[in-house]
Amino acid sequence: MTFTDLQATSWGFTDPGYGLTMADLFAGLGGSSTGAIQRPGIKLVVAANHWQLAIDSHSANHPDAEHVCADISQYEPRLFPHTDLLWASPSCTKHSVAQGKKRADKQPDLFGETLPDEAAERSRATMWDVVRFAEYHAYEAVIVENVVEVTSWPPYRAWLAAMDSLGYEHQVIHNYGISRNVSVCPDRSLPDFDPTGG
């Protein structure tokens, strides 16, 4: 399935019986899953996050999906249900310029916590978990949502090359602060991958 085919099917088809299944890694509270399943034919099968509160909220919003509370970096992809699509939102706070260049790992997060250097590096490394899961499951398409600044992450090109080496082509879409009713989304980068020659 090419990226164009995917757009014509999962993001624009009208036959609700077609059916593509989806996994949501680093699921948060469920906004990405909610947006995805509003498209006809998308079925959320499983969502995962390391934070129990996020899993509890996501589960309340998506009670029909399986929920996994685990550190994805320590989770074996073979234990994860296979789906057609992967939506992944790896940790972005340590890529964002909102953190400041010199204080990137020392600025407290929303809850006043400051990550030690090792944890901050692990936060950035969650991007590689996408590669691990894509390698094992060979998804029809992978959508990765993150801040635009992730493209300045030193291993970003190596990360893209790793996805390309799995047979995926990529298209990077930037979403610059789109206003949605009351809230404003931060600038986002959405690398989308589809298998080559599909």
Rank of each mutant, 00 (worst) to 15 (best):
F133C: 01
F133P: 04
T114Y: 01
G198M: 07
W153H: 11
E140Y: 00
H82S: 14
S10H: 11
T14V: 10
V182S: 14
S59P: 02
P77V: 02
G100M: 03
G197Y: 10
K102W: 04
P116C: 14
A98V: 07
A119M: 12
A119D: 14
A162K: 12
I37C: 13
A88N: 08
D56E: 08
K43D: 06
Q99F: 12
Q99K: 14
Y139K: 03
H62C: 04
R157Y: 00
H95Y: 15
P108L: 11
A158Q: 14
T196V: 15
W51A: 01
L160E: 11
I173Y: 09
P186D: 02
T114S: 07
A125E: 13
D56H: 05
W153R: 01
A27L: 03
A104W: 10
A65R: 06
V68E: 02
D117S: 09
E169W: 08
A65K: 00
L25K: 04
K101W: 02
G41E: 05
W51L: 03
R78K: 12
R132A: 07
P191Q: 10
E149T: 01
A60P: 02
V184M: 15
G30F: 06
Y136P: 08
P81I: 05
L115N: 09
V148Q: 10
G41K: 09
Y139W: 08
F193S: 01
F111K: 15
W87R: 03
I72F: 09
I55Q: 05
H170F: 09
T93V: 10
I55D: 03
Y75R: 12
A119N: 09
P40T: 11
T4W: 03
F133T: 01
Y176R: 13
D84S: 14
L44H: 04
P108N: 10
F26L: 02
N175R: 09
A162Y: 06
E135V: 04
G31N: 03
D117M: 11
A134Y: 08
F13E: 04
G100S: 04
R122I: 02
P116W: 00
Y168M: 03
D64R: 11
V147G: 04
G19Q: 11
G28P: 09
G112P: 13
G41N: 12
G28T: 05
A48N: 06
T14F: 13
K102H: 07
T114R: 12
P40F: 10
S33P: 07
R39Q: 14
P108G: 09
C92Y: 06
D192F: 12
R180M: 13
G112Y: 10
V130L: 05
R157N: 12
H58K: 05
E113R: 12
L20M: 13
T196I: 14
A47D: 02
Y168G: 02
A47Y: 14
F193Q: 01
